[in-house]
């Protein structure tokens, strides 16, 4: 067999995929509900440009998951934005090569 393509081309593709599968497996939502929401995002995103199935595919996946968790009350948009900002700061203030951690 020839060498297969890498399964995930970016680490975050793998992370968002695993996060979704884990939440499904731990009973937070049913897979058909997820697929229905994801299909809607893909259809909406595909209106403005043709999706190539790479980065844009996982961007749609992430968009769907954010909306899904928010609607289910599992996350709060403002809180997520605040934590994201904290991660950004952590990356920008951690010396190169040292592990990046959130304070506290």
């Amino acid at each position: 067999m020839t060498r297969p393509d890498p399964v995930f081309s970016e680490p975050w593709h793998a992370q968002v995929f695993a996060l979704t599968v884990h939440l499904n497996e731990t009973g937070h939502f049913a897979w058909p509900d997820w697929a229905a929401a994801f299909s809607k995002t893909l259809a909406a995103n595909g209106l403005s440009k043709e999706l190539d199935g790479g980065d844009d595919y996982f961007t749609a996946w992430l968009q769907t998951l954010e909306g899904f968790l928010d609607q289910a009350g599992m996350t709060d948009g403002a809180e997520v934005a605040q934590i994201k900002k904290a991660w950004e700061t952590a990356y920008l203030t951690t010396p190169h090569g040292a592990p990046v951690k959130l304070p506290g």
Binding site: W12, V16, L65, I83
Partner: peptide, 24 residues
């Protein structure tokens, strides 16, 4: 400083952090 991951990667990290802290 450490290389800043792309925006969607930070969004995923934020979701993970929030959900982990909630024990979900």
């Amino acid at each position: 400083h450490a290389l800043l991951p792309p925006d969607p990667a930070l969004r995923v990290k934020a979701l993970e952090t929030v959900l982990t802290r909630k024990g979900l």
